[in-house]
């Protein structure tokens, strides 16, 4: 009995992973860049399962116990019984929201002075009141990477916040929404999320970003305001388009899309934004 249970744990888990890979549902759980690891996992589970089948009559080397087998079969049983989907808005408040990217946050803390930048490089915390004669740092140095996106966005008729390089594009918008990209038409897609501290008439058109697996997801997005915003339920996927404005929130200037309306869209096949480094 134990031997069959062990074989079914190995082969069943391999089957679960294969089903997820084939249906593409693996993306609900982990970053697709984990696919090679998952595939290797399937092969190794198959190997272990077959080894166990060959050794059906060999005595067990360790005791696993009923609870052990139950635990090992839990992933399979839960998947079959619950048939879970991607994370939805209900967990967003628990996951934490990153309103600004690290780069934009640095910039928000007033232009860096030369001295502060050096301290920052050494990992020290900046002084509370920097010397008066320190020169402000030139704009180019940390943000050279974003210049490429900025140029592309400036030349495009409408900024489209695509899934591809989403985080970089989002950071660019956050960095330049007050100057170069002011009033530029912008199109964003995401699910509606209202955090408790958001002002009236504004929602966050949000996405989950996933680095490794859904457990490390956090919420990012762009603020939007449009007619009918108050009636819109949380978690609905929408697309909005409008000029890029700016709104004061938590002592920072945040980008805001001021649209004339919204369009409901189906949830995308890739529910999350995956970090790809």
């Amino acid at each position: 009995m134990g031997a069959f249970l062990r074989a079914s744990v190995c082969l069943g888990t391999a089957l679960l992973l294969t089903v997820l890979i084939v249906t593409g549902e693996l993306r609900f759980y982990v970053n697709p860049r984990f696919l090679p690891f998952t595939a290797a996992g399937v092969l190794f589970l198959l190997l272990l399962g077959l080894v166990q089948l060959w050794n059906l009559r060999t005595p067990a080397l360790h005791r696993t116990g009923v609870i052990g087998y139950l635990l090992l079969l839990t992933p399979l049983l839960l998947f079959i019984l619950v048939r879970p989907g991607a994370l939805d808005v209900s967990i967003a408040a628990n996951k934490g929201v990153s309103y600004l990217s690290p780069e934009a946050m640095q910039k928000e803390q007033k232009p860096l002075t030369q001295k502060e930048a050096e301290q920052r490089k050494k990992g020290e915390s900046p002084d509370k009141d920097p010397g008066e004669n320190d020169e402000p740092l030139s704009e180019t140095d940390p943000n050279e990477y974003y210049q490429r996106f900025l140029e592309e966005m400036k030349s495009a008729p409408v900024i489209d916040l695509k899934d591809e390089k989403y985080i970089s594009r989002l950071s660019t918008i956050q960095l330049y929404h007050k100057k170069d990209l002011k009033n530029k038409r912008t199109r964003i897609r995401g699910f509606v999320y209202r955090s408790d501290d958001l002002p009236e008439g504004i929602v966050m058109v949000s996405r989950y970003t996933v680095t490794c697996c859904a457990a490390d997801a956090s919420v990012v997005g762009v603020f939007a305001s449009f007619p009918g915003v108050e009636q819109l339920g949380e978690g609905i996927w929408i697309e909005v388009e409008g000029p890029l404005k700016s709104v004061r929130f938590q002592n920072s200037d945040m980008p805001l899309v001021k649209a004339d309306g919204y369009k409901r869209i189906p949830a995308p096949a890739d529910p999350y934004i995956y970090a790809g480094f």
Partner: peptide, 23 residues
């Protein structure tokens, strides 16, 4: 919804970790 969320998170930790445990 809560059960579904727990399951999604549980499976995501499980699926992410299992290849590395096997390794």
């Amino acid at each position: 919804v809560e059960v579904e969320t727990v399951t999604t998170l549980f499976l995501s930790i499980f699926i992410e970790g299992i290849p590395f445990i096997l390794m």
